[in-house]
């Protein structure tokens, strides 16, 4: 249990720190590595996904709340009338998609490697 919490914390930390120095898509590498080390496919997918969604969602809210949704509203309008709140959710969901896909990909890699 504690191991899992620690692993998830490490994952969250890596999601935050790596893209500060590397391109934004380095979160995919983080998810890939996490997935490779994960014990089950479900865990690889769900943790990598949920945690990136949470990290991204909270991170953008750090900008969005002090800005009172001003810019998110305008960018949303640019993409056909999406509201600021919806744009926060879409960003989080995009994080979830990337995290989940690459997490599961990492897991699948190990599966294939260990069979051979």
């Amino acid at each position: 249990m504690i191991k899992n919490i620690l692993a998830n914390l490490a994952l969250a930390l890596a999601y935050v720190v790596l893209p500060l120095f590397l391109p934004w898509w380095s979160v995919a590498i983080v998810a890939l590595v996490y997935g490779y080390l994960a014990t089950t496919g479900l865990r690889a997918f769900s943790s990598a996904s949920t945690i990136l969604a949470l990290v991204w969602g909270m991170w953008v809210q750090r900008y969005n709340i002090p800005n009172a949704g001003l810019l998110a509203g305008k960018i949303g309008a640019l993409f056909g009338g999406i509201s600021a709140v919806e744009l926060v959710l879409i960003t989080a969901a995009l994080g979830g998609l990337i995290g989940g896909l690459f997490g599961y990909l990492g897991y699948s890699f190990r599966q294939v490697m260990s069979r051979n």
Binding site: W24, V60, T91, L94
Partner: peptide
């Protein structure tokens, strides 16, 4: 590039300036 635009590090979110 939606990933570049939406990611919280370098995306448009960083241009949202605090009120006050």
């Amino acid at each position: 590039a939606m990933g570049r635009l939406l990611n919280p590090v370098t995306g448009f979110w960083a241009n949202a300036e605090a009120q006050g």
